[in-house]
Write a protein that binds this DNA or RNA. Structure first.
Lengths: 117, 117
DNA sequence: CAAATATACAACCATATGGTTGTACATCCT
DNA sequence: AGGATGTACAACCATATGGTTGTATATTTG
């Protein structure tokens, strides 16, 4: 089985911070959707400087949401769905805490009626 | 059926930003886990000032992850799992984009062999 | 009523963030 | 070789963030 190393608090900070920006979420969506992307081709899609987009990509890379692969003078940027999944799993675990609040009470209520001893 | 209003980009920014801090994720975990919480009781758990925790709670509230309910001089803080679910759904959608990249190719490969006309 | 408690909020500070422009360097193309 | 293209990176700026302390206002309690 494949081991899913859990992320440090610091890595989680970077991961959610990377997702907390419209432009960066948009870039992630493009990449996950399979758009062939160099830093330049990404930059051409947004109303901001090349350097600004470059910084956004660096933030995504630091969060592990994206990888860069040199190819000649270009850098191909690819999405990393596993990191996205780790963030999703953490949220699911937090939700699980919520539902766990009631599971014991549910069990008691679901129990076939039995007089208290 | 219950309608799930989708969030604005701005709301998503606030939502992920709220999650991008260890202390705030910890607060969310406590609340989802059912810990009875006033702002003070939360503040007592962390090595920072009351005002600092108060600000963290305000950020969580602004992101919709938490609600405050006045009760005498106290404010009861409760977790809102629906907002957590909205963030999770967005991540799942991004992951879905990734898997959709291959579905068409998969379909072609899975098709019973048929000579090109 | 007076003291203690819970919260709110303003002012302040250091650092981070998101943007800009400019410069340097590597690679591709004619 | 030399110009054009793609990337990296530094310096700078305005604003946001995460923390502090201090003050004000409600509410509970003795």
């Amino acid at each position: 089985m494949v081991v899913h190393p859990s992320l440090s608090e610091d890595a989680l900070d970077r991961l959610f911070h990377a997702l907390a920006d419209t432009t960066r979420r948009n870039i992630v969506a493009r990449l996950m959707g399979g758009e062939h992307a160099t830093v330049s081709s990404l930059a051409s899609r947004y109303e901001m400087s090349f350097a600004a987009v470059q910084k956004h990509v660096a933030v995504l890379e630091g969060a592990g949401l994206v990888t860069k692969h040199p190819q000649g003078r270009e850098r191909i940027v690819r999405g990393n769905p596993e990191q996205l999944a780790r963030a999703r799993v953490l949220l699911a675990q937090l939700e699980q805490l919520w539902s766990a609040r009631f599971s014991q009470l549910d069990a008691i209520l679901a129990e076939p009626s039995r007089r208290t001893p």
